[in-house]
Design a protein around this nucleic acid. Structure first.
Length: 672
RNA sequence: GGUGAUGUAGCUCAGAUGGUCAGAGCGGCGGACUCAUAACCCGCAGGUCGGUGGUUCAAUUCCACCCAUCACCA
């Protein structure tokens, strides 16, 4: 059925080796692993490599905090990752690290090639420097008061409160996160990559890669904004690779991280006679290279990476597949809700097969987020996997074992039903190839329903009581077992562990995809053991409980926002509401909804952008008293900084109603 | 604020160049069965397909605007 054997190299993004693997990471590794297993079953030479991302300042600092070397820290995490992945059935052909000789050699080779072609230049930039620690500080490692809204303890690159972006030197009272001292500004020479030289090449590449339309839209956005040159160097001390010809410059972690893909592959090639590095990484071969990534790192994989590869004489990826994020119970993962679930916590409580199936049942080829709804998870796994699929074998096996000495009959009584299942081989394969796993799972479950219906209609438990109908029972159960078997073959990439047990039950060697189209007849099978047990809600609850108690383990994890159903009076009093008089009101050029208001708040004036243009004419507003939130963090908008918020009610559009005070109130009065 | 995406039965999701497109699974209700891990089989769900306008003979499906949620803004 398959065309000629393809040679495919597949990667998943490299996990950063300073925190544990969690349920969000697993979306990607399971999605990739399923695809790779599918390709292998189709008879292709498919190789799956990955590595730990070991470099960069966060790892260096964390190692320092723990009093270990960065090598030791990342090795420890790598070992943990390998165990987690193995236990989830993620079957890498090689798992390496970016802190490797292969990676260094390739990174340097690429850099030298880019430099030779004039794509690298140096420029002196000014950066925050920690004199006590003797190191330059990445923006995220400087905190201080936001220069725009005066919120305290904000990162050096942007304010989480008002959304402004700035540089660390703009912060008020900046502090180094590392030493607690005040950073100084210091100049340093940095190396830049001329990404702008590659626009035409990148446009060609993305067209050929057949990227998802959502990805293309995003890329188009970046092209329109203009491709910026890329700072690829960092100053010592830094955990990474030294830039040749320099004493104290290192490659930025994001330069050598993707090089970890070919480096891991190169490491594998040394042990495998059937794989040749150049076949996969030099231009002009008919091999394929695919990267599975999260949508958050598209910029690196669809712009920098293809450009660097192309510029340095390597082949570009065949395509890049981006997936969305994971939510749990419809919300961001949260430590306090117990939905920030680490891979190990899951494994301590539940079967990996459950999650593999659940993700498969939800995954499509787009960058849409997927939701792990824990109630749905229990219902779906029990219903589909145990109630439908495994049940087919379970209800037939007893008859075969007890009445027919474990032998299958030599013909199928209903060949057309078997054909219906066999004919699904190519459509299901097509879904799998295109990463439309949810469609594949739906198709398979429909066929499982048909199988159960078949058994129900023929009622072997009735016929068995009639001595003349024993052969019919034999046939019906052989039919049932074969329907189960073909469906199990289709599910093998998703459920390798269950598949192995099923093969043991059926006494068969490793399956290929095409085996699903040929029935298994006149052969002995083994005693049926439960292939998968039901999920109990209690197990899920226990996992959530254990996740709640887990100490905050991940430093680069997503910020966690939790529900706050009520506020205290103190919280309310933090809001400084004031009476203000509108001095000026004018439309904002380029904004459909905004009016720019100048407010007199007694002792001071404020400029506010309010989205009330549809409801109020500017002239009608002048002189009016309104209520303004005076201590709202200023927000940088495209048109200027808005220094407060005018209170209004209503759903929006024309239905906006400004709040005002009764006569007697004067600008500056506090509202409470 | 800009850009992109999403918003369909209690839950998770399908769906169509605009006219059998209002669907599936789960849950729920009723029935049947007892081979099977309380699994399976049959029947029942009347959800204004986020809201408001518009185009059209006809819109959930096209357009505009609005609302909500999410992501990105290097």
């Amino acid at each position: 059925m398959s065309d000629k054997q393809r040679k495919i190299l597949v990667t998943s993004a490299l996990p950063y080796a300073n925190g544990s693997i969690h349920m969000g990471h697993l979306v990607e590794y399971l999605q990739t692993d399923i695809w790779v297993r599918f390709q292998k079953m189709r008879g292709h030479l498919c190789t799956y490599v990955c590595a730990s991302d070991a470099h960069g300042t966060p790892i260096m600092i964390k190692a320092r905090e723990q009093g270990v070397t960065p090598e030791a820290l990342t090795e420890a995490f790598s070992e943990e990752f390998k165990r987690d992945f193995a236990d989830f059935g993620v079957d890498f052909d090689n798992y390496h690290t970016t802190h490797s000789s292969e990676n260094e050699a390739l990174t340097v080779e690429m850099y030298e090639a880019l430099r030779a072609r004039g794509d690298i230049y140096t420029k002196t930039i000014e950066q925050a420097y920690d004199e006590k620690e003797g190191m330059f500080l990445p923006d995220r490692f400087v905190r201080g008061t936001c220069p725009v809204c005066k919120s305290e303890d904000q990162y050096g690159d942007s304010c989480e409160v008002c959304g402004s972006t700035y540089s660390p030197s703009d912060l008020i009272d900046p502090v180094s996160v590392v030493s607690g001292t005040t950073p100084v500004k210091r100049e340093s020479e940095h190396y830049f990559f001329r990404l702008g030289n590659y626009e035409t090449m990148l446009r060609d590449w993305m067209r050929d890669a057949g990227l998802d339309k959502n990805m293309l839209a995003k890329l188009e956005e970046w092209f329109e904004a203009g491709l910026q040159d890329w700072d690829i160097s960092r100053d010592a001390p830094y955990f990474g690779f030294a830039i040749p010809g320099t004493k104290d410059k290192f490659f930025y972690v994001w330069l050598d991280a993707p090089v970890g893909y070919p480096a891991s592959f190169k490491n594998l090639c040394e042990r495998r006679d059937d794989l040749d590095f150049d076949d996969y990484w030099r231009p002009g071969n008919d091999t394929e290279v695919f990267h599975f990534i999260g949508k958050d790192i598209m910029y690196f994989h669809t712009l920098f990476w293809p450009a660097v590869l192309h510029g340095s004489g390597f082949r570009t990826p065949t395509s890049v597949f981006a997936h969305g994020f994971l939510t749990v119970n419809g919300k961001k993962m949260s430590k306090s809700r117990g939905t920030f679930i680490k891979a190990r916590t899951y494994l301590d409580n539940l079967e990996p097969s459950y999650l593999r199936y659940y993700y498969a049942a939800k995954l499509g080829p787009t960058i849409e987020d997927i939701d792990l709804n824990l109630e749905d998870f229990v219902a779906r796994v029990n219903s589909d996997l145990v109630g439908k699929l495994v049940n087919i074998a379970s209800r037939c096996a007893g008859f075969i074992n007890k009445r027919f000495e474990g032998r299958l009959a030599d013909t199928l009584p209903d060949e057309s039903l078997f054909k219906e299942v066999a004919d699904a081989a190519e459509p299901v394969a097509s879904f799998m190839e295109n990463r439309e796993y949810s469609k594949a799972m739906r198709q398979i479950m429909l066929l499982a329903d048909a199988a159960n219906r078949y058994i129900d209609e023929h009622k072997p438990w009735v016929m068995i009581k009639d001595e003349d109908r024993q052969a019919e029972v034999h046939g019906v159960c052989t039919q049932g077992i074969n329907l189960f078997r073909s469906l199990m073959i289709y599910l093998s990439p998703v459920l390798p562990a269950v598949s192995d047990k099923a093969r043991a039950f059926l006494n068969e060697p490793a399956w290929q995809w095409s085996d699903a189209t040929k029935p298994l007849l006149f052969t002995s099978i083994n005693k049926f053991e439960p292939l998968l047990t039901r999920v109990e809600s209690k197990q899920v609850e226990k996992m959530v409980e254990e996740s709640k108690e887990a100490p905050a383990p991940v430093e680069d994890g997503e910020p966690v926002a939790d529900d706050e159903p009520t506020i205290s009076i103190d919280d309310f009093m933090k809001v400084d509401l004031r009476i203000a008089r509108i001095e000026k009101a004018e439309p904002v050029e380029g904004a459909d909804k905004l009016l720019q208001l100048t407010l007199d708040v007694g002792d001071f004036k404020r400029q506010v952008f309010a989205g009330i243009k549809a409801a109020y004419a500017p002239d009608d507003l002048i002189g009016r008293h309104v209520i303004v939130v005076a201590n709202l963090a200023p927000r940088k908008m495209r048109f200027g900084v808005s220094e407060g918020m005018v209170l209004a009610a209503g759903p929006g559009g024309k239905d906006i109603f400004l709040l005002s005070a009764d006569d007697g109130a004067v600008p500056g009065m506090r509202v409470k």
